[in-house]
Design a protein around this nucleic acid. Sequence first.
DNA 1: CGACATTACATGACGCATCATTCAATGACA
DNA 2: TGTCATTGAATGATGCGTCATGTAATGTCG
Lengths: 138, 138
Amino acid sequence: MELDSVSRYTRGMSTEATHELVEQWRALQCAYLKTSNALDRELSSRHGIGLNEFETLDLLAEHRSEGCRMKDLTSVSPMTQSALSKIVDRLEKAGYVRRAACADDRRSLYVELTDAGSHLHDEAATTHRELLEANLPV
Amino acid sequence: MELDSVSRYTRGMSTEATHELVEQWRALQCAYLKTSNALDRELSSRHGIGLNEFETLDLLAEHRSEGCRMKDLTSVSPMTQSALSKIVDRLEKAGYVRRAACADDRRSLYVELTDAGSHLHDEAATTHRELLEANLPV
DNA sequence: CGACATTACATGACGCATCATTCAATGACA
DNA sequence: TGTCATTGAATGATGCGTCATGTAATGTCG
């Protein structure tokens, strides 16, 4: 008869090592969720945009000089192409971003910050950096 | 005239320190998203439950002896009370969990693993630990 | 050149988490 | 004990991200 009242989810790992791994994961999870929730809340209430919207603005600001197409955005963002499409939708509707045709390739679209978007980014970035400082593990 | 072509979202922080902070945040984000996506995908395909469902099972297994009410679950999980209520709904519908009345306080409900839930947890935990080992930064 | 594969992006259906609210049970206190 | 606040949990509306798919435009290669 099998004794499986105690879980044995360790295949070649000691239980201590496994436990440490789980602790590490929970710490990572906790740090991430705490920070991202704080960021999302504050950015929403102070500036009216969510975290992912801000980070998209941030990437756009960062690559402003090179010109940023949707595909470039996709390659530097952890978000899905689909999600980015909708984020840019929202940012465009709010007037923070503009889609512009691309001469070389008519499938592509440039995404550019508008002046309003640039201003918003500057302000929101302050909030963002403050919260990172307050929430990030040292 | 103001020169704000360069963002100055540093109030008392050097730009390098700010940049480091952002890098740190992006690394955290990347590690978390990479790991949680991998976990979610694999747990879903191999065992038919999502990450949050598994982690709820995991917490229930961990506190099996003490008896776990919804409020206890809420206090040890990063999820919302509302979210947990729905997760437990799903787990219950799938037969992995059972809600049981609480004698002391008729508002409270105990949540217990069924045998099927216990088995599933054992199996899924293996997957979970494997993926943690594969994805977690060292 | 013409057919097929691939790429860039958008969209609809779906799942899931969150907020606000609700409801019942309990506590506190005059 | 009766009233009011609080607590434990469920639910409906809403928003957002993902997957699968659709649609152009562009490459590729016979």
